[in-house]
């Protein structure tokens, strides 16, 4: 998984030995603190509710930095989705020697059409996010596309610029 926004560029490799948790390594180019480091990450599924037409998930996420055990992050993120609608959120606290900071985001989306398995699927979304470093909300549209094992998400805001999220399922 590759991710890029105004705070960081990152590549995240993860493996899920069980549906309950995943472990991974995230390599980060920190754009705000002008630094490069990695996180050993652990994600745990706190709650999942499957129904005939929806799925709801709540995850705990954490990571320890290659800079030392006193640099780490933790947080929760969750989503609820049907084939037509999506709602998601994330809260994250990051501890760093230079400065601690927090991040939060909220996202809603709608699928303009319902594709069959194997088709190109499209989501039109709105995302709003804030971090305590800049202490202001950014709200912007996001286009999410996926087909087969490839997922791409593009968001653009004139101040925070591009949010890009690429994922490949092996």
């Amino acid at each position: 998984m590759a991710f890029s926004d105004n705070i960081k560029n990152s590549i995240y490799y993860h493996y899920s030995p069980s549906y309950k948790y995943s472990v991974g390594l995230e390599n980060i180019k920190d754009n705000y603190f002008k630094d490069d480091y990695s996180y050993v990450r652990f994600t745990y599924l706190l709650d999942r509710k499957n129904t005939e037409h929806s799925q709801r998930n709540l995850y705990f996420q954490s990571g320890i930095s290659s800079k030392g055990f006193d640099e780490f992050f933790y947080g929760i993120h969750g989503d609820w989705e049907t084939r037509r609608f999506f709602v998601g959120f994330g809260l994250k606290e990051t501890k760093k020697k230079i400065q601690d900071y927090s991040e939060q985001y909220y996202q809603i989306g709608v699928a303009p059409y319902l594709g069959d398995y194997g088709d190109l699927h499209t989501w039109i979304m709105m995302k709003t996010k804030k971090n305590s470093l800049e202490n202001k909300w950014s709200t912007y549209p996001v286009l999410k596309l996926f087909k087969g094992d490839v997922l791409m998400e593009f968001g653009y805001h004139k101040k925070t610029e591009w949010d890009v999220h690429l994922m490949y399922r092996f």
Binding site: Y117, D149, L151, R169
Partner: peptide, 26 residues
């Protein structure tokens, strides 16, 4: 239950395709 997205369902296809007794999946 809970099979709401194509990307999430990919794992189902991958898992069953590894089984030599499985000829096809949809």
């Amino acid at each position: 239950k809970g099979m709401v997205c194509d990307f999430c369902a990919r794992g189902i296809e991958k898992t069953f395709k590894k089984d030599t007794n499985v000829k096809k999946i949809d």
